[in-house]
Structures are given as structure tokens and as C-alpha cells.
Design a protein around this nucleic acid. Sequence first.
DNA 1: CGCACCCCCTGCCGGC
DNA 2: TGCCGGCAGGGGGTGC
Length: 269
Amino acid sequence: MPELPEVETVRRSLLHIIGNRIDAVVVYERRLRRPVPEELADAVAGCHIEAIERRSKYLLCRLSSGATLLVHLGMSGTFFVRPSGQLRQRHDHVIFGLSDGTELVFNDPRRFGVVLFGPESGFTELARIGIDPLGDGFTAAELWTLTRGRSKPIKNLLMDQTLLAGIGNIYANEALFRAGVRPRRQARGLRRIEVERLFGCVREVLREAIELGGSSISDYRDGRGQPGYFQLRLQIYDRGGEPCINCATAVTRVVLGGRSTFYCARCQR
DNA sequence: CGCACCCCCTGCCGGC
DNA sequence: TGCCGGCAGGGGGTGC
């Protein structure tokens, strides 16, 4: 579910809890993609939340102890605030009681997510993160450089987190459709004009998605329980067999890198 | 090194 | 109604 726009939306929706003290932490389920550290509860209790940042699809909660709480939502995770004292829901794995009488909940049915704790430099998952596609470091020239000499399909390049950090399956499909580029094209085969167009479309689709609060395909919600609305603007994702919005050609579905890939054989070359 | 293929896990949907 | 296969927003490991 959560790609860069959804994670960024969650981050923004949680900014209001900054300044809270974490009073108590209860871990109900340690078996996530990586086990929740045994020492997390004791180490985090008593700390204040000083900032909430995002790197790629990871959320980083800066704590007053100097350590960082690292959260990844995987495919099905949610990270949200609710009043304390409510019944634990199915798949609530970690609950952080906050000093303002609310609690911060990590819920994840598929358990592909991550809740880790430690100094930021210690997180191996952040070591190989690529360029933030919304940051200043991402330019058309940079995308051009990334595509040179790489034989992999351009869609796989967009989704390679070691190159570009935060683009997932939905937004890779959408950006390529907007740019008129076929997902299977070899990255190194793209012409300069195509790379420039794709660059603009990547930024545009991510920005628009954030503005609309991300895409709620099934059960995605932000940190306040609100859905996103960008799914209403999806032009190609999950539309296999349906008419292209530009030319009415049936949308093609193929599998690339194990992920469903959608494109219009007429509009995308 | 790149890449195709699996796996992790639960839930949902469609077909029978 | 219920069972089964396929599929899902991510990421990591293996073997070629």
C-alpha cells in the first residue's frame, strides 16, 4: 500500500503529536519483517518525540534520547493515533502510550512492516537508500545518468530503492503512463527527451498524490484515520482490459519483476 | 553485477 | 455456503 505519497501523508498527519512523551510501550507481536527489538519498550519509554521525518518509505521518529524509532509500513501497515483505553484491535502489534492521553498504534495484518529502534547510523535498511525523487538532488540530468548503461526495464529502475527512494508499483505505472513510455523499455534505450518527460511526470504524480492524501486502494489510512483520494485519479494502475483514457485501447497487463504492470500499447512506446 | 524467481503473511475476491 | 487459487501498495534472499 504505502509508497512515498502515503508515507509522507502519514508523516504530516502525525506532526501534531510532536512534543509528547512516550509513557508506556506494549509490544504484542514481535514477528514483523524484522523482529521488534526486545529492548525497544524500555529504551523508548520516557522519551519525548522531537521530530517525525521520512526517508524513502521509512518514518523516523526522533526521540529526546538521541535515538530514532524507525517504522516501515510494508504492504498493509498503518501507523495512527487514537484515544487511549480502547480495545486492542486485530493486528495491533505495537502501542505507544502518549502523555496527552492518546496512543500511537502500529497495526499491520501482513507483518511485512518494521518497527526498529536505535541510532540512525545503525539502520542497515537506510544504508543503501537512493535519491529522494522529490528532493533537490533529483533532476532530469540525474535521472539521465541513472538510466545510462542500465539494461533493466525503466519501470524496474524507477522502483529500485537503491537508485530512487520511495516509488512503488502504483506510481511507477502512473508516471510511465503520463510520460508515454513503455514499462519494459530498457532504461539505457530511453532518449533524452523521454527521460526529461519522465522526470517531470514522476515529480508531478508524486506531488499530486501527496496533495490528495495518497491512494486508498483498500484500507490505507493516514495517522488520523483519514483515507486518501488519489485512487480516483489513477489513470492506468489496475485497469487491465479496460479502455485507455486517451485512446480507448484495452489496457495491457504484464508481470515485470514479479509485479503487475499496466500500460497502453498505443499511447506508450 | 544484474536479474528472475521465491519467500515472508493475511485478507479479499471470483469461480466453482 | 464453503473451499481454493490468485492476487495485493514491499523488500530481501538465493541461485544462475
